[in-house]
Structures are given as structure tokens and as C-alpha cells.
Design a protein around this nucleic acid. Structure first.
Lengths: 129, 129
DNA sequence: GCCAGTCTCCTAATATTGTAGTAGAGACTA
DNA sequence: TAGTCTCTACTACAATATTAGGAGACTGGC
């Protein structure tokens, strides 16, 4: 079960850093935050420890006296969880979300076409099963 | 500025009721929750008051001795805010989100095709401007 | 071996969110 | 108009999230 518990916004930001940058030390995670709004070292630390308690990250090694943390849950599973929740707030329907993504230019035509292809493939597979 | 502050999950659920059902009283909002997990009247009340303090709802009239509340921010602007935040956590890219929606069957082929049409129309408009 | 710097571990204040009780005002009904 | 019911306004408290300080261990250079 990769599920893990619900992660807070801030916790997700830290996971984000780990997903993007591979195993990192506390200091390195801190450096992922913009200089003008960077939490204190110990703030990050507390979060990472909490993530560790939740089973979302683990210590993989020690460089000098610094622990190096790596994500234990995948970006995908976190995304799944989030989307679930997110859609729940909007009646479970994804369509308005899509519409919004398009209107704000977050989705390109290529993205959509790619999606369509995937979808066709999936539905065909279902037919055959 | 329709922006308003960030809304919590529960606050959004209340907004959801208001967006869906038009101006409502506290009691009516409460009734929007499933009977088997319905917060106390005063719990809803507190939330609505907080939403009022945040400028997300306002009192539009009084029926008998009950206040009627209406949303001050649109569903769209709240959605925009949420999506922004949401995507921020995933590097601002919408594609992985799409992929997920498809895999979990949240998006139908119709949805996609509709989206594609919209997108084509939009991009054409842009060309001409 | 000592010093400066960095890191860990523990602790804790503060803010935000979720939850709800109570007192009393106002409204409806017999 | 007395009784009952509903709603408001205020208050309280627990849980969670955010933020960070301080003491002391460890490391690397001199």
C-alpha cells in the first residue's frame, strides 16, 4: 500500500522537491524554495520528519553527518489521491476542470490529441475483454 | 478583486452548496450534506460566518428571522485558484493530470472531443487577432 | 585537539480548521 | 399571550498545519 495518509499543501511542496530532484538533504530541500519566501531550516526539517512518520519519505543514506531523504510514495499515487479529493469538491465531474484548463491555456492541442489516442486505445481494450 | 483568500476543503463544500442551490439559509446549507454525516447546525454556521469574513459570501436578505446567504465569488474564480495551486504542485503541467483523469475513467471520449473542438476554436481566434 | 560550521533531535508557540454548545432574540401557533 | 421552535450571535475547544528556537552531536580544517 503506497497510499499513505493525506498530505498537506506544504508537505506536498516538499515531496515535489524530492520527486523533481531525487534524494536530497534537508538543506537541499530548503534551497528548492524561492529565496524571498524560504522557510527556516528547522521548519523544513519538521515537515520532512513528519513525512517520514507518515511513510512518505525515508532516509536512504548519510553523507557526512547529513541524512539524505528519498520519496517512498510516487508522484502518481499522490496525484491520484489529490485528484480524487479535488474532483469530490466539484461533484466528481472532470469536465468543468478540463474546460478550465483549456481556457487558461494549460492544455495544448497536442495534449488533447494525445489524450484522445490513449482513450481510444483504452476503450478498445475494454471491448475485447 | 474577486480573489478572496484561500478556502479550506470544508469551506469549499459550503460554497459548492451555494453555487448549486442559489442563495440559501444556514439550515438549507446544512441539509445539503448527507444525513449520515451531517455537521451540526452551528458548525455550518461558523463556517458560513468565516466565509463571510473572508468575503466569499454575503447576506442578501432575511426571510422571517433567517439570513439568506449568497456566494460573492464565482465558482470559476474558485476553481481557477484551486487549479493554479494544484498544478503548482506538479510543476504547472496539466498533462499528467489529464493522463490520470483518463486512466481512472473520469473523462469520456465525448469530453475529450468537446475539449478538442473548443481548443481549435480558441486557437483559430487567436490567429486572427 | 580545537574551533567554526552544520546537522539532528526535541520542544513548542501560533494559526487555521473543524466541531459544537449556550443564551437569548424573534417568529409562529393554539 | 404563553409555549414552542428556529435562528443568531457569541464562545469554546480539539485537531491539524505551520513555523521555528535551542541544546548538543558530528565533521572538517588548521
Amino acid at each position: 500500500m503506497t497510499a499513505a495518509r493525506r498530505l498537506s499543501r506544504f508537505e506536498l511542496q516538499i515531496m515535489q522537491a524530492l520527486w523533481a530532484g531525487g534524494p536530497l538533504s534537508i538543506r537541499e530541500i530548503q534551497q528548492c524554495f524561492p529565496p524571498d519566501d524560504r522557510p527556516a531550516y528547522t521548519t523544513i526539517q519538521t515537515m520532512v520528519y513528519r513525512l517520514e512518520a507518515k511513510g512518505a519519505v525515508e532516509r536512504v543514506k548519510k553523507i557526512s553527518n547529513a541524512h539524505i531523504f528519498a520519496p517512498l510514495i510516487t508522484r502518481e499515487s499522490a496525484l491520484r489521491r489529490l485528484v480524487e479529493e479535488f474532483l469530490g469538491l466539484f461533484g466528481g465531474r472532470a469536465q468543468p476542470l478540463m474546460a478550465h484548463l483549456i481556457e487558461t491555456g494549460k492544455l495544448s492541442l497536442d495534449d488533447i490529441q494525445e489524450a484522445e489516442k490513449t482513450l481510444r486505445r483504452l476503450s478498445k481494450k475494454k471491448e475485447n475483454s
